[in-house]
């Protein structure tokens, strides 16, 4: 059961950055990270020294928003629409693929490390062979325009633990679960509360589903974003999580945070299912631990920055988080 709940998160390390860090991956069993962001550059850093010194691996033509690790290969995707394969040892570029005609929002890797999924604002999810970079499938199930005639955005994709299923979600709160074996959509879910369009208060939206996570048993799919916006000036909506028993097509939880406003940018389940962790922010950042059984937040904590991504270590004891001008290591 949840055991770390009464403690506060403790900052173990902070690394200030000039850029906004959008994504990171960790080499398993180590404190070595790859991270990338608004400086359009992928960095490699070992956080164990007192003064870590990040090294540049290479650059994209725009913001870098997706990073995955396939063995010794680092794979990055960015707003330039490209996927780039890098050798993590030699820091050489191995392969560049013009993967999407619009921004790549997220890159995911299957649990067996063989398949790469990328989503972008061309509203297509593409599956790639992690080894040779061949396009395996195109998954099309998200409308290119919002109901209000603006370009939609396909923000996120994630693989289920068994690797067979893949979920994608977009700006209007439309979720599709795909069977990667045949590329067929097998379930669609709707989370319209994530779409923040309001014809009176604002004629544009800043919401959408920004984070997805499957529970370890594959039963639940959690989606994160922001609730109805009060003032368009800023991210004036409550952080929002909706959880589905996706195979039944049922929404099991709807959580609207009572403490933090802002977007949930990333979600991850505890490996044993103790809790769901969300990270995100507005002008400040936050983490929140959600207990599915009790259907309530266990802990709501301020982060040192707006969190864009995080990874948990194998025991879910350490959080490696990346965000606005900072990388932070926290102990749960």
């Amino acid at each position: 059961m949840a055991n770390a709940n009464t403690k506060k998160l403790k900052t173990a390390k902070e690394l200030a950055r000039p850029e906004i860090v959008f994504c990171l991956v960790r080499v398993p069993g180590s404190s070595r990270l790859f991270f990338a962001g608004s400086d359009m550059t992928i960095h490699d850093v070992d956080l164990s020294p007192t003064k870590p010194e990040p090294k540049e691996i290479g650059t994209h033509g725009s913001y870098v928003t997706g990073l995955v690790l396939a063995g010794k290969i680092v794979l990055s995707g960015g707003y330039d629409g490209r996927l780039i394969w890098w050798d993590s040892e030699t820091r050489k570029q191995i392969r560049v693929v013009a993967a999407h005609t619009k921004w790549i929002r997220k890159v995911a890797i299957s649990p067996n490390g063989k398949t790469i999924a990328s989503v972008g604002d061309d509203m297509v999810c593409r599956l790639w062979d992690a080894g040779d970079g061949k396009l395996l499938r195109e998954l099309r199930g998200h409308a290119e325009q919002t109901p209000h005639h603006f370009p939609s955005m396909l923000f996120v994709c994630t693989f289920a633990p068994d690797g067979q299923f893949l979920a994608t979600a977009d700006k209007v709160g439309h979720i599709v679960i795909w069977d990667t074996a045949n590329g067929k959509p097998i379930k669609t879910l709707e989370a319209p509360g994530m779409y923040t369009w309001d014809p009176v208060q604002r004629k544009h939206s800043i919401g959408g589903i920004r984070a997805l996570a499957f529970s370890a048993d594959g039963k639940y799919l959690a989606a994160g974003g922001i609730s109805k916006i009060g003032n368009i000036d800023h991210l004036d909506g409550k952080a929002r999580i909706e959880i589905f028993d996706w195979q039944k097509g049922e929404k099991t939880h709807e959580y609207v945070d009572d403490k933090f406003k802002g977007i949930i940018e990333h979600l991850a389940f505890h490996p044993q299912g103790d809790w769901l962790l969300g990270g995100g922010g507005a002008n400040d950042g936050f983490f929140l631990f959600f207990d599915l059984k009790a259907n309530k937040a266990l802990r709501q904590e301020k982060a040192a920055m707006h969190v864009h991504a995080f990874v948990l270590d194998e025991k879910a004891e350490t959080i490696y988080a990346a965000g606005h001008g900072k990388i932070q290591v926290l102990n749960t």
Binding site: F150, P151, K203, H204, I206, I232, D233, L235
Partner: peptide
Amino acid sequence: RAWWDSHGQNFETHQELVPE
């Protein structure tokens, strides 16, 4: 044409509004 006051999500906002 309002809603340009993008203190939050400037790029998404402009991605919607500028093409229009």
